[in-house]
Amino acid sequence: MPHNADPRGQQGTLHALYSDHHSWLYTWIRKRLDNHFDAADLTQDTFLRIHSRQEVDNIIEPRSYLATVAKGIISHFYRRKSLEEAYLEYVALFPDPMTATQEQQHIILQTLEQIDALLNDLPKRVKTVFLQSQIEGKKYQEIADDLGISLISVKRHMKQAYVQCLTLMEDDFFE
C-alpha cells in the first residue's frame, strides 16, 4: 500500500475505495437493516467517516475495515432510533405540560442521546447502578440493598461509570 500524504492522492484512493466496495458495503449494511433508504444513508456515512479520519491510505484490508466502521455506524443508528422511539412513546403516554415547547423537548431529547451515548458500552449492572443513583436519586446503600450487592460494589460501579463518562466527554460535549 502506498503511503501518500497528497490530498489529491487521498481523494483518489477514497474514490477507488468507493467504486470498488460501495455496492458490496451497501448490500452488507442492507442485510443488517430493515429499510433500504437507511442503508443508502449509512453506506454514505461510512465512507464519510473514513474520509474524515484521513486514514484512507493506510487501509490494508478494505472490506474488513469498512465493515468495522460500518458496524459502529449501524449500532449508533439503532441506538439513536430506539432512543427516539422510546422518547416518542413516553411523550405520547405521559404528555407533560411542563415541557410544552418544542425547543425544550428538543433539548431534553438531545441530552438523553448524549447521556445514552456515554453510558452505552457499560455493563448492564454498572448502568443500572448509575441510573438509580443519578436519575432516581437513590443513596448508595439503598442501591446496594435493592440489588443485593455490597456498598463497595456500588461505589466501584459508580466509579467505572463516572470515569467512562468523563473520558468520553469532549470538553464541549454538552454545548
Binding site: Y90, I108, T111, L112, I115, L119, L131, Q134, I135, E136
Partner: peptide, 14 residues
C-alpha cells in the same frame, strides 16, 4: 446535564 432530565422519563428511556 443529568439534573436537567425529567426523572421518570429518563429512567424509562435510558
Amino acid at each position: 446535564q443529568v439534573d436537567t432530565l425529567p426523572k421518570n422519563m429518563a429512567t424509562a428511556i435510558l
